[in-house]
Amino acid sequence: MNQKSATANPASGFVAFDGDRCIAFGDLRSVARTAKEVLGRRAQSTILVFDPNSGPVDLDFRGSLEDVLARLPDTANAPLAISEPAGAPPRGPGRPKLGVVAREVTLLPRHWEWLARQPGGTSVALRRLVDEARRTSKDKDRIRHAQETAYRFIAAMAGNKPHYEEVARALFARDAGRFEAWTKDWPADVRDHARRLAAAAFEQDASQTSVAS
């Protein structure tokens, strides 16, 4: 989707702003296409594109639309790189280990000794530990990711807006009421997108409030 729509969720895709106005959201190619079209009509436009998981995306809009699209990063569809650890024996016939990525891990001797004693060996134990940590830290990771993503957006788009510092403090304090109050006078598209990105940072408090009531 390259135009705004009531049925789409701009917090889950790439977003392009022309000044304070949201001009497109969706996949990167469609957003870049719309941004290039806007620049074609208004060369003085200031276009910023945001990745939903990181922050501003540095796109090169020089040349034709085909030139712009050809230069887009293609990380979303890149396959996982699969490598073997150094000195590993050749893999015999049979089903390949799809999605397994071998990378260097540095541990102390006592860590290697403990891992070697675990059922299934070192690799199985490490995967089990990582999965357990992901489960136990899921809420914290979600909140931290929402805070960091929202902060990168407001730092780029609202650094000169009223109450910017108060908004940032409310975001990291996870104070939804103050965050909403301090952003109410911001331009509508900037305000609404900042609130969408920050929403997950406040979800836990909202659920606890609903239970208490």
Rank of each mutant, 00 (worst) to 15 (best):
E165P: 04
A76M: 07
D205L: 08
A198N: 04
L80H: 05
S213A: 10
A206R: 13
A16V: 09
F153L: 01
Q3L: 11
R103N: 04
G19N: 04
A158I: 00
G121R: 08
E84H: 12
V101M: 07
D20E: 15
S54H: 10
Q147P: 00
G26R: 01
F153I: 02
F179S: 09
V124E: 13
R62H: 15
A146V: 10
A158C: 05
E132L: 03
A158Q: 01
F50A: 03
A199Y: 06
R169D: 10
L171S: 03
P96F: 00
C22Q: 10
S45P: 09
P52S: 06
L59R: 02
P109R: 00
G63W: 11
R128P: 05
G87Y: 08
D189Y: 04
V15H: 03
R152D: 00
S210I: 12
R117K: 14
F61P: 14
Q208K: 14
A24Q: 03
S210N: 10
Y151S: 08
P89Q: 11
S12K: 15
P162A: 13
K97F: 05
V211Y: 15
V15C: 08
A70L: 07
T7F: 10
A32P: 05
L126Y: 00
K140F: 07
F153Y: 02
A11W: 01
F25S: 09
A81H: 12
M1Q: 11
K138P: 01
E203Q: 15
A188V: 11
R196S: 12
A81W: 13
D20A: 15
S137N: 12
A194W: 00
R62V: 11
S54W: 08
Q118W: 01
V167K: 05
A199L: 06
G55F: 07
L98Y: 14
L48S: 14
R128D: 15
K161A: 13
A188K: 08
F14W: 08
E113S: 14
L65I: 14
R128T: 12
A201L: 02
A125F: 01
K161T: 04
L80D: 08
W182M: 13
A35Y: 03
W114A: 15
P10K: 01
G99N: 03
D60H: 09
G63T: 09
D20K: 12
V57P: 00
F172E: 00
P85Y: 15
L129W: 09
Y164M: 09
F179Y: 14
T75H: 05
D74S: 09
T209H: 09
K138R: 14
G94E: 07
G120V: 00
